[in-house]
Each structure stands twice: as structure tokens, then as C-alpha cells.
């Protein structure tokens, strides 16, 4: 039955994105653990899959982007991938919006962002969330996930389900400010990228948030580095779900 199911329904791929896979390895581990906890039968293709093309497209290499999309399509088809779950907002935006544009109807793979997946899993009773009573958290919308993909509510709902006291920064959702990490700014203009990050972190301090949470490895790494001296700790979304002890310890400090 299971085998037949797989043949007809195809495989679910966990696609972490290059930054998570090669640099944010703990985050990748967290997300894999979450998939296992939810009882998802998934595959990974770490050595075969290629970059989604987000940095390539952003840097103006459109032909390379198209080639990456076509290459990935072939790899995914070879492995009967019918659904991809990714935690990376940039990959999510590329796979769900830009791939269909360059690949047309051939691209028929369902794309889910991890926050959508978690909310569904919790609602179906397949996943349990830790509780953080009275923790004051603000949520940073990653540009690719929020204003570029309209995913604003799912991550916020999950936070509320964890008994978190969610406070919004004055600039939130469609008006939210970038962390400064995207568009190539970190590599091409690191000082400016840091300034923009500090500006964003200050907005979290303004609303007395204890922590900033964001479901983006890039935003997380960039803000963590720039928030070291401030009073606000930065966490990637999965850390809150998987590393409850670590988070609680960090806040007590």
C-alpha cells in the first residue's frame, strides 16, 4: 500500500536551500527533525539538487537562473518529487513563483513553506508545540516570505499557539523593513547591510521584545551578528520549536 502510495503520489522533498544546508546546519537538522516528528516520509537530495537561483537572478544572471530551474526540474522529476517543503523564504519564492514563469506547465510540483506545513501538522494533531508562557516575542517578516509571497499569518498563528506574547514592531507585515541581508547587500556592501540590520533590530527593542523570531536563515544569521550587543536575542523559527531549553536559557541571561 505504502509503495503504491509513493508511486502515485510521488515523493516529498525537503529542500533546505544552500545557506541552511551548508552554513546553518543546526537549522537544517531542526527542520528534518520536525518532519520526522510529524511523521512525514521525505527524501533529501543534498548532492544532486542545485541552488534555487535566487542569488543568481538577483545578481542579474537571468540565463543562468533559467538553466538552474531546468536542471532542478530534471533532478526532481528523476526522483518523482511531487511536493517540496522548504524553510528558506528565497527558495520558496523562486520555486513557487519564478519557476512556473520560466518552466511553464512542466513545473507541476507543489511547494510549501515550512511555516505553512507546521501549522497544518499542528492543526491535524500531528505535531506538538512547546509552550513559552509570557515570552514577549516580535516576528520579523522575511521579504521573500511576507510581502513577496503573502505569508504573514501562518508563522504568527504558530507563535500564538505556543502561548507566546506576540508584539508587532511598528513596521510589520507589508510595511516591514528588510533586515539588510538580502539582494546581495551582505556581500557587495557589508557595512551598509549591517546598518540596515541594526535599524531593524532597534525597531524590535522599541516594542520591548525579548526576542526576534524569523523563519529565514539569512535574516537570522544577519540579525544575530548585528544584535550581539543589544538587548534583543534573535532566533530562527525552528530553534523555538526544537531547542526550547536553549531559547529559555538565552533569555534568562
Amino acid at each position: 500500500m505504502f509503495i503504491l502510495d509513493k508511486i502515485f503520489k510521488g515523493n516529498t522533498l525537503y529542500y533546505p536551500g544552500c545557506l541552511t544546508k551548508f552554513v546553518g546546519k543546526d537549522i537544517e537538522k531542526n527542520y528534518k527533525e520536525l518532519l520526522k516528528k510529524a511523521g512525514v516520509d521525505f527524501v533529501v537530495l543534498p548532492d544532486l539538487e542545485k541552488c534555487c537561483g535566487s542569488p543568481v537572478k538577483n545578481a542579474g544572471f537571468e540565463d543562468d537562473f533559467k538553466k538552474l530551474a531546468a536542471d532542478n526540474l530534471k533532478i526532481f522529476k528523476d526522483h518523482s518529487i511531487k511536493r517540496i517543503i522548504t524553510n528558506c523564504p528565497a527558495c520558496y519564492k523562486m520555486l513557487s513563483q519564478d519557476y512556473p514563469k520560466v518552466l511553464g506547465q512542466e513545473w507541476d510540483i507543489e511547494i510549501r513553506h515550512f511555516t505553512e506545513f507546521i501549522l497544518e501538522a499542528v492543526n491535524k494533531g500531528k505535531m506538538k508545540l512547546p509552550k513559552y508562557d509570557n515570552l514577549k516575542v516580535t516576528y520579523h517578516d522575511p521579504c521573500h516570505l511576507g510581502k513577496q509571497s503573502d505569508i504573514y499569518d501562518q508563522p504568527r498563528e504558530i507563535l500564538k499557539m505556543m502561548n507566546i506574547n506576540l508584539v508587532e514592531m511598528q513596521l510589520n507585515k507589508k510595511n516591514s523593513f528588510c533586515c539588510g541581508g538580502g539582494g546581495g547587500l551582505q556581500s557587495n556592501n557589508p557595512e551598509l547591510a549591517d546598518k540596515v540590520a541594526k535599524q531593524r533590530i532597534e525597531q524590535a527593542s522599541d516594542v520591548d521584545a525579548q526576542i526576534i523570531i524569523t523563519p529565514c536563515t539569512l535574516c537570522d544569521m544577519h540579525m544575530k551578528r548585528n544584535g550581539k550587543d543589544g538587548g534583543v536575542s534573535v532566533f530562527e523559527f525552528s530553534e523555538l520549536l526544537v531547542n526550547a531549553e536553549k531559547v529559555r536559557k538565552a533569555i534568562k541571561r
Binding site: V23, C51, P55, S187
Partner: peptide
């Protein structure tokens, strides 16, 4: 650097041996 790496290795960081973490992040 980023585009050279993507063309050659399929990722923006370059050649990564098992378990290594790239130091220079040409991306994002």
C-alpha cells in the same frame, strides 16, 4: 565569485568537502 561557483558547483559558495562550512558567503 558567486556566479562562478554556481556554474561550477551548483551552489554560491564553491567546492564544499564533506562536513565543511564555507567561510565566504558569496550570495544573498
Amino acid at each position: 565569485k558567486m556566479i562562478e561557483n554556481v556554474r561550477k558547483y551548483g551552489n554560491p559558495f564553491g567546492e564544499i568537502k564533506d562536513g565543511d562550512t564555507p567561510k565566504e558567503l558569496y550570495c544573498c
